[in-house]
Write a protein that binds this DNA or RNA. Sequence first.
DNA 1: TCTGGGGTCCTAGGACCC
DNA 2: TCTGGGGTCCTAGGACCC
Length: 443
Amino acid sequence: MYGLIDCNNFFVSCERVFNPALNGHPVVVLSNNDGCVIARSNEAKALGIPMGCPAFQIKDHTDPRQVVQLSARHIVYADLSHRIMSIMGSEVEGLEVYSVDEAFFRTPYDDVDQNHQFLARLVTKVHRCVGVPVSIGFAPSRSLAKIASHIAKKDPRITDGVYWLVRPEAIDIILRRTPIADVWGIGRRLTASLLGKGIDTAYKFAHMPSGMVRALYSVTVERTQRELRGEDCQVVNPVTIAHRSLMTSRTFGHVLTDRCQVQDAIVHFAQATAKRLRDEHQVAAAVMTYVRGDRFREDLPYYSNSCEMRLRTPSSSTMTLVHYALVAFNAIFRDGFGYRKAGVMVSELSPDSSVQLNVWDTEDHGKQRALMQAIDGINQRYSAHVVQLAPEAGEQSWSPNQSRLAPRSKTLRIYTGQIYDTDASEDCCDTSNDKTPHTHHSV
DNA sequence: TCTGGGGTCCTAGGACCC
DNA sequence: TCTGGGGTCCTAGGACCC
């Protein structure tokens, strides 16, 4: 059987770890540009604030002064996630980290009650050690475990945070109560299509003829259907497996028209992507740059384009990737338009241990690799951006807005040996969101 | 005034091959 | 008048996820 551990209101719960005064209040965490709501506390959900709600629309749902709005601090969330996954990894077999706040695993026992007791203790342990509340569901398939974990989270009668779906009669009852839109893998388009055919519950979907599902939709949808019938056939690609592509992109704090400013951003994104690639010990055979205008501004001409470059030899060198990202950028940049977002993506990744050198390639890859290792080493030893290839102005014109970072007094806390200092300067609002937690000393 | 940032997989259709 | 039948590979775009 499969279990799914799911953190409750994850980003909000992380903020509450560092500021317990937030408990009991409606709290939302905002996306990178303080744009939309990406996490809500139960109190915020009760006020009717939907997921993905643009921040400026919160007032449509409630008095915005009632709601604590916080800029996201993904570095902090990633660290807490890592702690939770470490605990899980040491307690269960076959942990598949599916996202920052979710992981599938194999339940350790054959017996349902034994599993239940074991997992209830695990819920308590994670909460006690990390401070983040979690829920666990378990069932014969991952899709059913997902439904079970939602029930564990939502139903207040489930006090120990664990819910299981194993007996066929129980599964039928729950599937009849589950709206088709709540099924994992059934998004907006499929929901609309299925509703049009009178399929409004997970139960009706599970009992459609398989051949019809396959013919109307795709193998993915058919797999989802089989999962609801208790068959284990979902192919999960956990993030612990190597990425197939990596992307760095941002919405700018405001519309940019100057070529140099957008180019600065591209250089920054390419550098960041190259570093992540090296951290994963992978190389890329293709680099794509894209730019686009502001899709919400109807008063400006909209332009959007992308260009992909193939590398002669797969690489993770910052110099190489920046070079190709800029060649692509120069191919698509047009004067006279406003730009609101841009990004760099690398794809066709492979392990860096097996780079096949191109006969016609004249670049010296050995030297580049040694240089990259040296730079990464210096940056790791000192602070993140001591050595950079391209000069970057202190204040980047494209920096996203992040005006709602938790105040320093609320974030600087000693936490099991680490000090988080997410807002280095007390007076000015530092918009850089790349601060890493520094380990100053053990406590 | 203000609308995120990553990822994955699948399918259809065209180019090309024998 | 009559105009094959498979294959494979690649790409763009759609749909989904958190």
